[in-house]
Computed example of a mutant assay.
Amino acid sequence: MTLPPEDFDPFHDLLDVLDLDAVAGEADVFEGRSQPQPHGRVFGGQVVAQSIVAAGRTVADLDGAPRLLHSLHGYFLRPGDPDTCTRYEVERLRDGHSFSARRVHAIQHGRPIISMIFSFQTHDDGLEHQAMMPAVPDPETLRSDDDELATLGNPVSEYMARTRAIDIRHCQGHLYGRPRRITASEQSVWLRAKGELPDDPLIHSAVLAYASDYNLLEGALRRHGVAWGDRRIRAASLDHSMWFHRPFRADEWLLYTQASPSAQGGRALGMGHVFREDGVLVATVAQEGMMRLKQS
């Protein structure tokens, strides 16, 4: 595993990854590169984020009021190859009076690695209520996961500490090296991008979706007293869903509260809410993943 050069900037690398290229001569088709990963597979959150950008570009050209992303649902079908360019093929399913639907297939080697559907909506008024943000420590009082990873002394953790574009801070302690004494299926993390993002709601949605895939399944590990350092773990994301409720910036602190209501059949379910620092609920996330413990 080769570490990036000292002047590597993970934040600007993420912005570059999200800047997809339109394929000449093909309508609604885009291409993008991948970020290298220590496990040799494309990070699922990256493919979700790039799919958001591809779908959003086909909505931006519509006349009338802006249509913002309000929900997405996708299935991870195959591991992605980080050394291969990914092709994003967008299908315009419907453009109604206030909603637009898009389907995106991310293609490598002629086969889909993820299939997603998105819905965009113009602004509308209606009933208003939200879940309440729990009381947690302020992010400034917590150590960054980058600092924690750097102390573990192994190549994978050092690589992660050097290449993450998102500042993540665990409220109940991280699970990278060892399990925690208190076993619970809930946890909270603060997160934000490590630089100032452009004033484009689509990019902020893409970056939050990218970050939401980092640790949503950790509630299942925490519940069973297991950490990522356990060599028996075999984990992979199977699907991912998000609902965007209210405006936010992904370069400002967001609290990501997470819980695992069930684990069974070699799968674990994670549910999450994302709050602004002022307590406003901005998104809800759900993901099921393969979660197996290989018997030694």
Results as ranks from 00 to 15, higher is better:
residue 1 M to D: 02
residue 5 P to T: 04
residue 5 P to L: 05
residue 6 E to P: 00
residue 8 F to A: 03
residue 8 F to D: 00
residue 8 F to Q: 01
residue 14 L to A: 02
residue 16 D to G: 11
residue 16 D to L: 07
residue 18 L to W: 03
residue 21 D to S: 15
residue 23 V to R: 06
residue 25 G to C: 02
residue 25 G to A: 03
residue 29 V to F: 01
residue 32 G to S: 03
residue 34 S to W: 00
residue 35 Q to C: 11
residue 36 P to G: 01
residue 39 H to A: 04
residue 40 G to Q: 06
residue 40 G to M: 12
residue 40 G to P: 01
residue 42 V to P: 14
residue 42 V to A: 10
residue 43 F to N: 08
residue 45 G to K: 01
residue 47 V to N: 01
residue 50 Q to H: 05
residue 50 Q to L: 08
residue 51 S to G: 08
residue 55 A to L: 06
residue 57 R to E: 10
residue 62 L to Y: 09
residue 63 D to C: 08
residue 67 R to C: 04
residue 68 L to C: 04
residue 72 L to P: 12
residue 73 H to W: 11
residue 74 G to D: 03
residue 77 L to R: 01
residue 80 G to F: 07
residue 84 T to H: 04
residue 85 C to Q: 15
residue 92 R to N: 11
residue 94 R to T: 11
residue 98 S to H: 05
residue 98 S to Y: 07
residue 98 S to G: 09
residue 101 A to R: 06
residue 103 R to N: 11
residue 104 V to L: 06
residue 104 V to K: 10
residue 105 H to S: 14
residue 110 G to V: 05
residue 110 G to F: 03
residue 112 P to M: 10
residue 112 P to W: 13
residue 115 S to M: 11
residue 120 F to G: 05
residue 122 T to R: 15
residue 127 L to N: 02
residue 131 A to D: 02
residue 131 A to L: 10
residue 133 M to W: 00
residue 135 A to Y: 00
residue 137 P to I: 02
residue 141 T to M: 09
residue 141 T to E: 14
residue 146 D to G: 06
residue 148 E to Q: 02
residue 150 A to D: 01
residue 153 G to I: 03
residue 157 S to F: 03
residue 157 S to W: 02
residue 158 E to I: 05
residue 164 R to D: 09
residue 164 R to C: 00
residue 171 C to N: 09
residue 175 L to Y: 00
residue 176 Y to K: 07
residue 180 R to D: 13
residue 181 R to M: 10
residue 183 T to N: 15
residue 183 T to Q: 15
residue 184 A to C: 12
residue 184 A to K: 12
residue 185 S to D: 14
residue 186 E to H: 12
residue 187 Q to N: 08
residue 188 S to T: 08
residue 188 S to E: 13
residue 194 K to I: 13
residue 194 K to Y: 04
residue 195 G to D: 11
residue 195 G to K: 10
residue 196 E to T: 15
residue 198 P to Q: 09
residue 199 D to M: 13
residue 199 D to T: 06
residue 202 L to W: 01
residue 207 V to M: 12
residue 207 V to L: 07
residue 209 A to E: 13
residue 210 Y to H: 14
residue 212 S to F: 01
residue 223 R to P: 00
residue 224 H to C: 09
residue 225 G to L: 09
residue 225 G to I: 09
residue 226 V to G: 02
residue 226 V to L: 12
residue 228 W to L: 15
residue 228 W to E: 02
residue 229 G to S: 08
residue 232 R to N: 13
residue 235 A to F: 11
residue 236 A to K: 03
residue 237 S to E: 08
residue 237 S to W: 12
residue 240 H to N: 14
residue 241 S to F: 03
residue 241 S to T: 05
residue 244 F to I: 14
residue 244 F to W: 11
residue 246 R to M: 11
residue 246 R to I: 10
residue 249 R to W: 06
residue 249 R to I: 14
residue 252 E to R: 15
residue 252 E to K: 01
residue 254 L to P: 12
residue 254 L to R: 07
residue 255 L to M: 11
residue 262 S to P: 06
residue 263 A to D: 13
residue 263 A to W: 01
residue 263 A to L: 07
residue 266 G to R: 05
residue 267 R to Y: 08
residue 273 H to M: 13
residue 274 V to S: 10
residue 275 F to G: 09
residue 279 G to P: 05
residue 280 V to R: 12
residue 282 V to I: 04
residue 282 V to C: 10
residue 284 T to V: 04
residue 284 T to N: 13
residue 285 V to Y: 06
residue 287 Q to Y: 12
residue 288 E to L: 14
residue 288 E to R: 08
residue 288 E to M: 04
residue 289 G to T: 07
residue 289 G to F: 12
residue 292 R to E: 15
residue 296 S to H: 11
